Simulated scan of single mutants.
Amino acid sequence: MMLYKCYDPFIIESPEQCIALWAKNDKVARRKCADIHKKLDFYNAPVRTVLKDWIVEEYFVYSQCDVFICYPKDLDRASDVRIISVPFEISNVEEYVMNQLVEMESHEENFREYVNDKSVNMSFNERFYIDSEGWIFDPYLNSDESVDVREDIKVRILEENSNINRYMDDLWHDNVHDFFEDNEEYRDIFIEYITTDAEPDILDEGFYFYVCKELMELGEWVTYNDIRKVDIVA
């Protein structure tokens, strides 16, 4: 039996539009997929559409493994759906699957760009400029205006006879320490990366994995909320 990923080539709105199943060949896989959809009342595509238009991809899987198909919360296309092989000897399957998902996500180009970006918005670094009221910068500035902090922060700083730069620096460091509270090495590397002219090459694979796992657990990156074992069905 071979493993196949069968999916709608267009926009995917539900897990039923991207299925993993076992079959003897791609023709049988396509037929099985069509049979599944005949039983789904909500799915309006005719069986012939599934048979004719859907993509059927074969996946190599080691024989001594269980297979899981993982759907993200925000599902848009088939490439969003991950297939994970879990060796039989793994005792903590849930942890293994999650680590594999983190490993995959941490290598995605958009994730690396997000982490490597040193700017204060639309980046990983942005999350460290957030206080109890949200992002500390004024979100209503025009595109041609320089970045400025919120008015309530200016008032507070004036009342406390402090200054904006000190407030921003203290907040940023406090938030960085909170995020990396159980890994001082990565904390110090990130601080060096952001506060100096350091290039991304000082961030190793372990760093990206750590950050990705933390963000996924916090719900700030891709969240896989539907994980199913792919059973062998005759």
Rank of each mutant, 00 (worst) to 15 (best):
D174S: 10
M2N: 15
F190D: 01
A45G: 06
K39R: 13
K213A: 11
D144T: 10
L218N: 13
K38F: 03
I136E: 06
S123H: 06
F179T: 03
E57N: 13
R31P: 00
W172S: 00
R156F: 07
N175M: 08
E113C: 11
I202W: 08
D197I: 00
E220Y: 14
I202L: 04
C6M: 04
I55K: 12
I153D: 01
R82S: 09
H107V: 02
L203F: 08
K38G: 08
V61Y: 05
I191Y: 13
W54A: 03
T49Q: 13
Y4W: 08
E126G: 02
L203K: 09
G134W: 10
S106F: 09
F137C: 02
H177W: 00
I157T: 05
D66Q: 11
S132K: 14
F68M: 05
I69F: 11
L218H: 08
E95M: 07
D226A: 05
R150T: 03
I164P: 01
V97H: 07
R112K: 15
S143C: 10
I19E: 07
D174Q: 10
E113W: 06
S79K: 14
M168W: 01
E95Y: 07
Y140T: 05
N183M: 10
H173E: 15
S143Y: 14
D148P: 00
E105P: 01
E103W: 06
M104R: 05
D170P: 01
D174G: 00
F68Q: 01
I19W: 00
E58T: 12
D131E: 11
N142S: 13
E108N: 09
R31H: 09
D152Y: 15
D231T: 06
F10D: 15
S79W: 03
N25C: 10
I157Y: 07
D131C: 10
L171Y: 06
L21W: 01
W135Y: 15
N225E: 14
V102Q: 05
A45Y: 14
N175K: 15
I19K: 03
E217V: 02
E58I: 05
C18M: 04
N125L: 05
F10I: 07
S143W: 12
R127H: 09
V28K: 08
N44G: 09
E89G: 02
E94C: 00
A23G: 12
A198H: 03
C18G: 04
L158W: 06
I202V: 15
C212K: 01
E103Q: 12
S123N: 07
I227S: 05
E103P: 00
N183W: 11
Y210A: 03
C18F: 04
R31K: 14
I90A: 08
E145G: 04
Y210F: 15
N175A: 04
I11G: 06
E184T: 09
R31D: 13
N183S: 13
I164E: 14
R228W: 08
I153Q: 01
I83L: 14
K73C: 02
F137R: 01
F180N: 03
Y4L: 04
D8T: 00
V222N: 09
R112S: 07
F209C: 03
A23W: 06
S14P: 00
N165V: 00
V149H: 06
V120S: 08
I136C: 07
Y167R: 03
E57W: 02
K5F: 15
I191D: 12
